[in-house]
């Protein structure tokens, strides 16, 4: 680890990896720190992404594709079914996919450090100038012209830098998911159960991961969560009832932001991307595409800022405007309205 870089990326998920790759490809010096000892685990994702969305960032490789889906079935409270054919969806293996994205960043020239945690920002007045990195019991002060906060749902970096990132209880889905094997499913079809019995304020999903295997998960609105009525309770109930002989080989939990995005996703010396910026889809919970999309846009803004010698908030807000004005940003705004009207 050096003591200074052009760009410091905090977090090694899809947002951080794409940001690091983009900035490194433009010739900047980049350090990416991931606090976990490995990238891609534990999985906290339904692992689905539109095929076209995926292809904007990486070629479709069989290594990280578990299933290709051609239809979605929505199942209502009265067991009514509606089938939607809305383009192809890929179910990823995030353990492999996330590592592939990180490898691409490394290939482009970014330095990757795992089990390395940004524990505090280095501030000069209001300006973020780097971070304290803790790794294997050692402490490093790493200065950077710009920090890209890609630290996900549990994002602390932007909060330390003075930006309010707290999610209200009615702005988060509390989720639990099992990878269930040896079950009868149509491996080309995703299912969404939308009813207050299965998932109050949210939905339950079945995303096939190949033959006889699927991610079965539930997300409920934070305000609906209570003892005996938690995401894991709804999931256990559903799986025991519908797949009593399924073999659970992976359990994961997570929070998905379904609130509005941060009011501002840039400040002096810092850009905030992906789940850290609260940019997952508030209706479906999808977040991988928005993470990669904003990761790339943030890196492009950072490259321009470094080349212009201006890393002020005023300059970096070009990133904030860029994603809000993009198709992704407009769709996100529409989805926020849909979510508000559902409540």
């Amino acid at each position: 680890m050096k003591d200074s870089y052009d760009i410091l990326v905090v977090g090694g998920g899809p947002a951080g990896a794409v940001a690091a790759r983009t900035a490194a490809e433009a010739g900047l010096s980049v350090l990416l720190v991931e606090k976990r000892s490995a990238v891609g685990v534990p999985v906290r994702s339904g692992e689905s992404i539109g095929k076209d969305e995926l292809l904007e960032f990486i070629e479709a490789e069989q290594r990280f594709i578990k299933a290709e889906i051609d239809s979605s079935v929505l199942i209502g409270p009265d067991s009514s079914k509606k089938t939607i054919h809305d383009g192809e969806t890929i179910i990823l293996d995030r353990k492999i996919f996330d590592r592939e994205l990180i490898w691409r960043a490394a290939e482009a020239g970014a330095e990757i450090q795992v089990h390395a945690r940004a524990s505090a920002p280095i501030m000069e007045g209001e300006k973020v100038c780097g971070a304290v990195i803790e790794q294997h019991g050692k402490r490093y002060e790493v200065r950077a012209k710009i920090v890209i906060a890609a630290d996900g749902i549990e994002s602390k970096f932007a909060k330390w830098a003075g930006i309010d990132t707290t999610i209200p209880l009615d702005g988060i889905k509390s989720c639990a998911q099992y990878l269930v094997n040896d079950i009868d499913i149509d491996e080309k079809e995703m299912q969404f159960y939308i009813s207050p019995e299965d998932a109050p304020g949210g939905h339950l999903w079945i995303f096939p991961k190949g033959k006889r295997s699927a991610n079965i998960g539930v997300g409920i609105l934070g305000t609906e969560s209570a003892d005996g009525k938690r995401a894991c309770d709804y999931l256990n109930h559903f799986v025991e009832k519908n797949y009593p002989n399924g073999k659970i080989t992976e359990r994961s939990v997570g929070g998905v932001p379904v609130c509005k995005p941060l009011k501002e996703t840039a400040a002096d010396g810092i850009l905030i991307v992906g789940d850290a910026a609260r940019l997952s889809n508030p209706v479906t919970g999808h977040g991988i595409y928005n993470a990669m999309f904003t990761g790339r846009l943030a890196a492009e803004a950072a490259v321009s800022a470094v080349k212009n010698g201006n890393t002020s908030k005023e300059f970096l807000m070009a990133y904030d405007r860029a994603w809000r004005e993009s198709d992704m940003g407009k769709e996100h705004e529409r989805n926020c309205l849909v979510k508000e009207n559902m409540a």
Partner: peptide
């Protein structure tokens, strides 16, 4: 399950 949902809602 160290998912971080709690961290995000802590004011």
């Amino acid at each position: 399950g160290y998912c971080g949902a709690c961290v995000s809602v802590c004011p």
